[in-house]
Amino acid sequence: MSTLSDRLAPGRRDAVRRGGKRRGRLVAAAATAWLVFVVLHLLLSGRFWLWLVPDLVPPLVYLAVPLLLVAALPLTRGRARLWCAGATAVAFALGAGQSGLDPAALRAGGEPPPPGSIRLVSWNTEYWDQDDDPERFYGLLKARNADVYVLQEYLNWVDGTPRRVDEQARLRREFPGYHIAVQGELVTLSRFPIVSTVPVGPARSLGPRPPWDSAFALGKVLRTDLRIGPSIVSLYNVHIPTQYMLDENPFASRFYTALRGRAAARQAQFRGLEEDLAGNHRPVVVAGDFNSTGAMGEMRGLFDRLSSADRAGDSLMPTSWPADGPALWRLDWIFTASLAVHDYRLLDPRGMSDHRMQETRLSVKGGGGA
């Protein structure tokens, strides 16, 4: 059977063959480049500050790019096709775990919550109620009827500068009977008694009553120890600094100076959190906005030590930012140790934040350390 190129005039036939070879080389180059990118990501993410820029790609690309390369395989021939198929398969095997895909969602989720289980909500409020109707804002929070609220960005943002807010009087009115802990932009509300607060990481350098600006800059992890029945559970409210501001110019040298500084600040918060967890043998919950996807190397220590609550969820690809969609990034997380997780959901913030709200139900396994 003759092919199309066999039926063409000789000159045209040669042009078609050259075009096919060029397309095949392009696919081979793309497969090679993608494999190199995935290998570099595994080696450099969380270890080299400049990789924070490639870390910004949506994790979904670790699935999407291999699928596109497979679709392009018919454009290659012979050894080039074998190379493309092999490179794509290796890249997929190495990168699939970085994609954010949660196969556990195919199972039935966690065990049904027992009586007395704890409802916990974690949410980056996006500058509290600065641009929202306060009644709607507080109504959204109260509608969750959570036992514990872990909230970030308890502040306003004016002319590019963070500004303190003080709504503790209103919080006490809106949430009567709750215990309140505040550090900089972090606020934790709990129906359970807060028996202690422990400085974590860079916040250890803060005095007992630090200026708000200092607490905002250094206090990105708020640990509160809660008495829940006979147990004490350590709750970590986390807001890791962002690595990139959307209005910054990556072609200016100051962009890289700022990037390196933010990388150092992020690493200090992650190290402080991991060091505190290493010395804490109580049941723990670590919740908040990590400004980090599951593909980023800075999260490895938490994944190695703790369990992600989304294993009890029902979403194959849970994403939390931007909330008004399409949400391509998972920046908000809840991790636990020595606690049973019964369900996990990401909720619509009704236009009051660019982050989706996390909600889970937990219970203490046996007795926690006192």
Results as ranks from 00 to 15, higher is better:
S315T: 13
T188M: 09
R25A: 09
I194C: 00
R223I: 09
A89Q: 03
L246Y: 11
P349R: 00
D276I: 05
L75N: 13
G24D: 03
N124M: 11
M296E: 08
D14C: 06
L8I: 05
H342A: 12
S363Q: 14
A105H: 05
T257M: 07
L120Q: 05
P199M: 07
G110F: 00
G110H: 06
A91H: 04
W83L: 00
R13M: 11
G110I: 05
A268Q: 09
R119S: 13
L306K: 00
Q183L: 15
L171T: 08
A105G: 04
V195K: 02
P250L: 03
P250N: 07
R260S: 13
L155K: 03
R144A: 13
G351Y: 14
A80F: 02
G261Q: 15
V233P: 05
K21Y: 04
R47E: 14
L42I: 07
V364S: 02
W51Q: 14
R227S: 13
G351S: 08
T161F: 05
H41T: 01
C84E: 01
E298L: 11
T161S: 09
R260W: 08
V182L: 00
R262A: 13
G201R: 09
M296L: 06
G313P: 07
A96I: 11
R79D: 10
G368P: 01
R12P: 03
M1I: 01
E275M: 00
A80M: 06
I118M: 08
S117C: 06
V39A: 03
V364H: 10
G116V: 09
V150T: 15
E185A: 15
R254F: 03
A64Q: 02
P162Y: 04
K365Q: 10
A309Q: 01
A295E: 05
D324H: 11
I194P: 05
S315E: 15
V286R: 01
K142T: 11
L94E: 04
R271W: 07
V61Y: 05
L328S: 05
H41V: 00
Q152G: 12
D289Q: 08
D289L: 11
L101V: 10
T161D: 02
R254L: 08
R330T: 07
D102I: 06
R79N: 08
S307R: 08
S315H: 03
L42A: 12
A72K: 02
A203C: 04
D133R: 14
T125L: 14
V53Y: 14
T88F: 04
Q269K: 08
R260I: 04
P134G: 11
R361Y: 15
G207R: 10
G351M: 14
N124Q: 09
R356D: 10
I240L: 14
I118W: 01
A30C: 14
D354F: 06
S231R: 04
A370E: 11
W83N: 01
A264H: 14
T293R: 03
V285F: 05
L82S: 06
N145C: 13
V195F: 09
F92E: 00
L339K: 08
V150K: 10
T32H: 06
L316C: 06
G367F: 09
A31R: 00
Q243C: 04
A29Y: 04
V39D: 03
L259K: 14
F303R: 15
